[in-house]
């Protein structure tokens, strides 16, 4: 019984890490630009697909993953420069629609370039499961959880210690004031896209051995990641990561103890109820709207 519970939690946390990393990307961009970037799931896809492609081209695994993440980061920056910045004076809703267009475009390009098949990346370190109190744990799950924690830690340091991180936070609090004190809001926006793409791509690469990847994995991940970001309180990066983990565990427990047919429904019902009770999300700041 306990082994079962532990197993549900382990698999929930692993899947939840992917949601969390996607959610992190959503919040970082939302904070600096006020845009919900629906191409976030595609960044995750790019990380996974490019890792597989580079690995198949003969690169060793670490090099393939690092190069894939770097390339996805460049794509993220390019998206901001080519698709968002030219129309930055448009309303937020228009920008959101631009990101939907970008996501369809990236997905289509990935399909044309790499085909429609589902692909798999080899495990980073061995495929033999480790027994833990009656449950079993894949070494890859440790990688996923470990890397997610590292990224969170890195971002925390970046936002609290580096001048760029602080600049991005300033943009989040008050764009105009950030302009006035000499922060290049445009550069911060590009940085936020690059950083989100990097986070998403890392998620895509570390999950590819467990969950496999294909050109259209971004759709579902984008949706779940967005839900996780809302659950954690849109605007709070660490809330978003926590939201992802909670969503993953809820899904897994729902499948285990209630019914696997209603797995997705259950997670979203809890999300809805929570939003009725606490509209700002679990860890969101109350926003005071001036009338």
């Amino acid at each position: 019984m306990f082994g079962g519970l532990l197993q549900y939690v382990i698999s929930g946390l692993t899947v939840g890490s992917a949601y969390g990393l996607t959610a992190l990307g959503f919040t970082m961009i939302f904070n600096t630009t006020g845009v919900i970037n629906f191409a976030q799931g595609e960044f995750v896809m790019l990380g996974g697909m490019m890792s597989v492609m580079l690995h198949q081209a003969g690169l060793n695994l670490p090099a393939a993953v690092i190069l894939a993440v770097a390339a996805a980061t460049a794509v993220g920056a390019a998206v901001e420069r080519l698709a968002i910045r030219p129309v930055r004076r448009a309303t937020a809703i228009n920008l959101v629609i631009v990101t939907i267009g970008v996501s369809i475009c990236l997905r289509g390009l990935a399909m044309l370039a790499w085909g429609k098949d589902t692909l798999r990346l080899p495990n980073f370190s061995g495929a033999a499961p480790l027994p833990v109190f009656g449950a079993s744990l894949m070494p890859q799950s440790l990688w996923v959880l470990g890397v997610t924690l590292l990224i969170l830690l890195g971002l925390r340091l970046f936002f609290s210690r580096s001048i760029h991180g602080k600049g991005m936070l300033a943009c989040a609090y008050q764009r105009k004031a950030a302009y006035l004190v000499g922060i290049s809001v445009e550069r911060m926006a590009m940085l936020s896209f690059a950083l989100s793409a990097a986070t998403g791509a890392v998620g895509g690469a570390i999950l590819a051995p467990l969950t496999m990847t294909s050109y259209d994995v971004g759709v579902m991940l984008g949706l779940k990641g967005f839900a996780a970001a809302v659950l954690g309180g849109l605007g709070n990066p660490f809330g978003a990561a926590a939201g992802g983990l909670i969503l993953g565990v809820l899904e897994s427990l729902g499948a285990g103890y209630v019914s696997s047919a209603y797995k997705d429904a259950l997670a979203f019902i809890i999300l809805l109820v929570l939003l009725f009770v606490k509209p700002s999300g679990l860890f969101g700041r109350k926003s005071a709207e001036r009338v």
Binding site: Q7, Y8, S11, V217, M220, S252, A255, G256
Partner: peptide, 13 residues
């Protein structure tokens, strides 16, 4: 679900 990437929960059951 057709897009699910982890069926550990179902198999545990």
């Amino acid at each position: 679900g057709p897009k699910d990437t982890d069926m550990t929960a179902q198999l545990t059951k």
